[in-house]
Design a protein around this nucleic acid. Structure first.
Lengths: 141, 141
DNA sequence: CTATGTGCAAATCTTTTGCAGGCTA
DNA sequence: TAGCCTGCAAAAGATTTGCACATAG
């Protein structure tokens, strides 16, 4: 297939990709721009795909999935597993708690310091903590 | 279809179902027994289905899924979302932290009190906390 | 008897993969 | 040029659903 010339992707997005040693292809650059410039975000592959179209990015859904996985493996994104059968990607990669609104299935960062781990567990022999995920599920009252 | 006479399900399992107002059908009783008598467990629908067969329970996979959802809706079980595309059911329904072994994808309860929430968040207006899920992801060192 | 449950298979939905060809370095 | 990427469509895996029949209360 014929690809259009490179025309998407901010400098910031370019650095973001370079930092992880990923080739700045047209598709990745466009997706990276959407991810980096949107501030802290939590989105699914479908959602990013839907955003890419109107932005003129012209990426296939499979490429969105592949790119998100590549970004995650490179440490640029973080997977958030909250809902069964649906993966969210978080542009913040540090440990931080999330609010999950059960009503509409949306996700938000909980205010910094809103949850503090007072005591860390006795980790089983031969293991180390990779991350600590905290999800506060909220219900409309 | 012809069903075999009721012959599975302990008294304990019967009470467990009655407590939630669920009809103690043969299939549900058998599944409830497996769940209640196994102590604290974290299993998937597939896993429970696999256990039911040798136990002579003769349930279909669809029924296992339906029953697990019914149990969860009734508050007898708790869904645990840790891995994308795979739901675990926990026989403990109170808030408690989990260890997740990234190597083999297994789940275990973290020792009681191993994690203590020091400060609860400022919950958004009009919302209340349904539950707080804590997952400590472990990596083999 | 009547509302619930159940089995089976087909349908959904999300995510992954195989392949042929395009593109970055 | 060499190997990484992409698009497309098909595959895969988990869970749900439609329908006819069974069964608990």
């Amino acid at each position: 297939m014929k690809y259009a010339p490179q025309k998407f992707g901010s400098r910031e997005a370019g650095r973001w990709l370079a930092r992880a040693g990923l080739r700045p292809t047209r598709q990745r650059s466009a997706l990276a721009s959407l991810l980096v410039e949107g501030g802290n975000r939590h989105l699914t592959a479908e959602a990013l795909f839907a955003e890419a179209q109107p932005a003129g990015a012209d990426v296939s859904l499979a490429t969105v999935y592949n790119a998100l996985r590549a970004f995650t493996d490179a440490g640029l994104l973080r997977e958030v597993n909250i809902e069964a059968g649906r993966v969210y990607y978080d542009t913040r990669v540090d440990d931080h708690p999330h609010f999950y609104y059960e009503d509409d299935g949306s996700i938000a960062d909980a205010p910094a310091g809103s949850v503090r781990i007072a005591a860390l567990p006795d980790v089983p022999e031969g293991c180390e903590v990779a991350s600590v995920d905290v999800v506060i599920r909220l219900r409309r009252r």
